Simulated assay, not measured.
Amino acid sequence: MKVVSVVGARPQFVKLAAVSAAFAGTGHTHRIVHTGQHYDAELSDVFFADLHIPAPDVHLGIGSGGHGAQTGAMLAALDDVFTDPGLCDGRPDWILVYGDTNSTLAAALSAAKLHLPLAHLEAGLRSHNRAMPEEHNRVLTDHAADLLLAPTPLAFRNLAGEGLAARARMVGDVMTDVLLRVRDAVAGLPLALPDPPGDELRDGGYLLATVHRAENTDDPERLRAVLDALAELPLPVLLLAHPRLRAKAAAAGVEPARGAVRLVRPLPYPDTVRAVLGSRGVVTDSGGLQKEAFLLRRPCTTLRTETEWPETLEGGWNVLCPDPGALAEAVRRHPPAAAPGHPYGTGLASEQVVEALAAG
């Protein structure tokens, strides 16, 4: 079996780490195409190194741009990549796409147009917010795919509700595989931060935060309200500043590093896991970090009106907080008394992905 994985953004690299490890030693051919959607070394190269992912076989170097321009550039480049017989010594058996980014949609469209079998990992997630570009990418990719690899029973039910059950398989969540492995490796290690100030941060004495989605950053007034709310929180806030946030804040004339906020560059994935473990809780608009907080047993407050991971809401482990004015009250809530269950599996999803691809 010959499989080509297409990735381009941080969450996809984490998923790729699990899938790549599962392919190792199987005898199957697995090739990696990196679109370059996340081109910053702190959001790309470091993940390949820290998670021991093989170097990409192809790096498109697309970089940033508007949704249409970025997706179109990827689509044009991927058409040439997928038809190159040298990529995997002939026609691929599967194009495997991950998640909900522009890289996902571009690869899905290219595979569909070229009549190449398409598999979607993390299929069936729905926020039911059609204003989100990620929601369009998910839905369009699912309806184009030949094999839908669902991470949860709810995701499978979503696919069935859209008439896609015959193409769907329940495999579990591959990010859980990586997270559990990294959690065990970093437990007990000191918190390492790339930027001062960090000495004042102690385990259990800070909140970890990320902000990057368009709904929180594109409108200057909304961005100001979010950053004001973080600055006024009663605990130090370790804000991992995605390049998008830094650029949007600068354009809006807003300074993120004030009040409670301690601004640092994005961390390597193992250090991010360690930072979550050391925190009192998480504030984010990231889908992946919501789930990571849930799996690491840290309360999460999500700066959105909805979540693709509704399982995290059970028992109050995750709380939606679309109003920045309500953020302080949300983060002061008592931690849940009951431990969360295991809706995302126990760490064996990546092997099931390979088995599902091999079975067709």
Score class of each variant (00 low, 15 high):
residue 19 V to R: 05
residue 19 V to S: 07
residue 20 S to P: 06
residue 21 A to K: 06
residue 22 A to F: 06
residue 23 F to V: 15
residue 24 A to P: 05
residue 27 G to P: 04
residue 31 R to F: 03
residue 33 V to P: 00
residue 34 H to S: 04
residue 36 G to V: 07
residue 38 H to W: 07
residue 40 D to W: 05
residue 40 D to H: 12
residue 40 D to Q: 11
residue 42 E to S: 14
residue 42 E to Y: 14
residue 43 L to Q: 15
residue 44 S to D: 13
residue 48 F to P: 03
residue 52 H to L: 15
residue 57 D to V: 15
residue 57 D to S: 14
residue 60 L to T: 08
residue 60 L to H: 06
residue 61 G to N: 14
residue 62 I to Q: 11
residue 65 G to Q: 04
residue 65 G to M: 07
residue 66 G to Q: 13
residue 66 G to T: 10
residue 67 H to N: 13
residue 68 G to F: 08
residue 69 A to T: 15
residue 70 Q to C: 13
residue 70 Q to I: 09
residue 70 Q to L: 10
residue 71 T to Y: 02
residue 71 T to N: 02
residue 72 G to N: 06
residue 73 A to K: 15
residue 74 M to R: 01
residue 77 A to I: 02
residue 79 D to Y: 03
residue 81 V to G: 00
residue 83 T to D: 09
residue 83 T to E: 06
residue 85 P to F: 10
residue 85 P to I: 14
residue 86 G to W: 14
residue 88 C to T: 08
residue 90 G to A: 09
residue 91 R to D: 04
residue 95 I to A: 01
residue 98 Y to N: 08
residue 98 Y to S: 05
residue 101 T to N: 12
residue 102 N to V: 11
residue 105 L to S: 07
residue 112 A to S: 11
residue 112 A to K: 01
residue 112 A to C: 12
residue 113 K to P: 03
residue 115 H to I: 00
residue 116 L to K: 01
residue 116 L to Y: 01
residue 117 P to L: 05
residue 118 L to C: 04
residue 119 A to C: 08
residue 119 A to Q: 01
residue 120 H to C: 09
residue 121 L to V: 10
residue 122 E to W: 05
residue 122 E to G: 05
residue 123 A to E: 03
residue 125 L to D: 08
residue 127 S to R: 10
residue 127 S to Q: 13
residue 127 S to H: 11
residue 131 A to E: 15
residue 132 M to T: 06
residue 132 M to E: 13
residue 134 E to A: 05
residue 135 E to R: 01
residue 136 H to R: 15
residue 136 H to Y: 14
